[in-house]
Amino acid sequence: MPKVLKAEGMNKCIGCFTCMLACAGVNHRNHSISKSAIKVRTSGGLQGKFVSVVCLACKDERACAEACPSGALEKRPGGGVILKKEKCIGCRKCESACIVGAVHFDEDENKPIICKHCGVCAKFCPHECLEMEETANDL
């Protein structure tokens, strides 16, 4: 069964940013948290709660893929999309189509940063905020 990332334990988050460092490192071979597909931030300064902005793995209809003019975002089994970099023209239409703001944009590469639900962030979360969950294949 396919798996998708669920960030349902964010109440336990300590804001260590290890998930972002791991995602940027493994998926982009980069030290910068700017490259991470998951973004952890505070709502209202450090006295506010930690929240994560990451792909919610939409099933059936994917707004980001619908908005893509070049077919660079293909449906991923179980939810979400897969970026075909060679087809992407960097128009940023997917970024505005995602209404939870989970499509981030890599200015250096001129490509969106798309979560592929690989689970690296969950593996490096010390507090079980992030977990991989099995889900039915919707394709």
């Binding site: 290890t18 490192g25 493994v26 071979r29 980069n30 030290h31 910068s32 948290i33 700017s34 490259k35 250096d108 490096f124």
Partner: peptide, 20 residues
Amino acid sequence: DRDLPIKNFKDYFKVYQEIY
């Protein structure tokens, strides 16, 4: 927020994981 590619990913990530 600068772009900073990792130079020797394999070596680096192995040590990172051990320490983690």
